[in-house]
Simulated assay, not measured.
Amino acid sequence: MTYLGEGWDSTAELVDGWVERRPRRPEIGPQLLRESVVMPWLAPLLPLPVPVPVVVSQEPVVVRHELVPGAESRTLNAVQGRQLGEFLLALHAVPVAEALRRGVGRRPLPVDRFRAEVRVPGAEELLAKLDGLPADTLVHGDLGPEHVLGHDGVLTGVIDFGDLHVGDAAIDLAWALHSTPPEFTTAFVDAYGVTDALRERALTWHQLGPWHEVLYGNDIGDQAVVEEGLNGVRERLGIGVIPM
């Protein structure tokens, strides 16, 4: 047994060649079980390897899946940008009705908590942009460098579909458009066909990302996580970071 790490929702260990995941909080158990229903259907529709969990135990919840090859890429290139663009084109083309039938739902944003817990200049202006965003596409929901794996200059897989939901396609573009090298971003834009409207909404999602970290820090009672999240909020809104 080899400890692989943990995220906000689950822990992962390598057991007999399988990745074994367990929820860190009770409400994550149903999420892992849902992945075991959705991912066997979704995986063949995608051009990169993804986890396909099977249920080992329902009480407590334990799931296992084959190890997706690769690791977080320290450098990103045009080939990988094109690959991710093609991956998201395929994911975003999946029929929403079929996803809903398999238990994937829409995910309301915790706007009231954002308003109460993230008190920084410009907060209301950003929250106002959330009104009327589309929710008509199957999205990964948490696409970032730790979930996009690569090896030898190419992408080898995408992991962590716990936040899979029906929402705004632009949420999956936020990291690729705003936190990657120019050559990666340019290739991604060309492969996906990013429009001005998508680019504008992706910036909103990019700016909103650290707000979730603030709420998570409050949930687990860790002020350091809260402050790190608040600094991320300030940085992305361009209002200055407070030294920790």
Results as ranks from 00 to 15, higher is better:
Val118Tyr: 03
Val120Pro: 06
Leu100Val: 08
Arg113Gly: 07
Arg113Cys: 11
Arg115Tyr: 05
Ala93Lys: 10
Ala99His: 09
Ala99Phe: 10
Val111Thr: 13
Leu91Tyr: 05
Asp112Lys: 13
Val94Pro: 01
Glu98Arg: 09
Pro110His: 12
Ala116Gln: 05
Arg113Glu: 14
Ala97Leu: 12
Pro110Ser: 08
Ala90Lys: 06
Val111Gln: 13
Leu89Glu: 07
Val94Arg: 03
Arg102Phe: 00
Arg101Glu: 15
Arg106Glu: 11
Pro110Asn: 11
Val111Cys: 12
Ala93Ser: 13
Leu100Thr: 02
Ala99Cys: 15
Val96Gly: 02
Val120Met: 14
Ala116Val: 00
Val120Asn: 11
Val118Phe: 03
Leu88Phe: 07
Val120Lys: 14
Arg115Lys: 07
His92Asn: 09
Glu98Leu: 01
Phe87Thr: 00
Arg102Ile: 00
His92Trp: 06
Pro95Glu: 07
Arg106Asn: 02
Pro108Asn: 05
His92Lys: 08
Arg115Phe: 05
Arg101Trp: 05
Leu91Cys: 06
Arg119Lys: 11
Leu91Arg: 03
Val118Pro: 00
Arg102His: 06
Glu117Val: 10
Arg115Val: 14
Pro110Glu: 13
Glu117Gly: 06
Leu89Ser: 11
Ala116Pro: 00
Gly105Leu: 09
Ala93Cys: 08
Leu91Thr: 04
Arg101Leu: 14
Ala90Asn: 12
Glu117Thr: 13
Leu89Cys: 05
Val118Glu: 03
Val96Ile: 09
Ala90His: 10
Leu109Cys: 03
Arg107Gly: 05
Leu91Asn: 01
Leu89Pro: 01
Leu109Lys: 06
Val118His: 02
Pro110Lys: 11
Gly103Arg: 04
Val118Ile: 06
Ala99Gln: 11
Glu117Arg: 14
Leu91Ile: 02
Arg119Cys: 06
Ala99Glu: 07
Val111Met: 08
Asp112Val: 11
Ala116Leu: 00
Ala97Thr: 07
Arg102Trp: 00
His92Leu: 02
Arg113Asp: 15
Pro110Thr: 13
Val104Ile: 09
Val96Asn: 02
Val118Ala: 04
Val120Arg: 14
Ala93Val: 07
Glu98Met: 04
Pro110Val: 10
Arg113Trp: 11
Arg101Cys: 12
Val118Cys: 10
Ala116Lys: 03
Arg101Ile: 10
Leu100Arg: 03
Glu117Asp: 15
Arg113Asn: 08
Ala99Tyr: 02
Arg115His: 07
Ala116Arg: 08
Ala93Glu: 13
Val118Arg: 04
Val94Ser: 03
Leu91Glu: 01
Ala97Glu: 15
Arg106Thr: 12
Ala93His: 12
Val111Gly: 15
Ala99Pro: 15
Pro108Lys: 03
Phe87Ala: 00
Leu109Arg: 09
Arg119Ile: 05
Arg107Ser: 12
Arg101Ser: 15
Ala116Phe: 02
Gly105Pro: 09
Leu88Thr: 15
Val94Thr: 09
Arg115Gln: 06
Leu88His: 12
Arg115Ile: 13
Phe87Leu: 01
Val94Ala: 04
Pro110Arg: 14
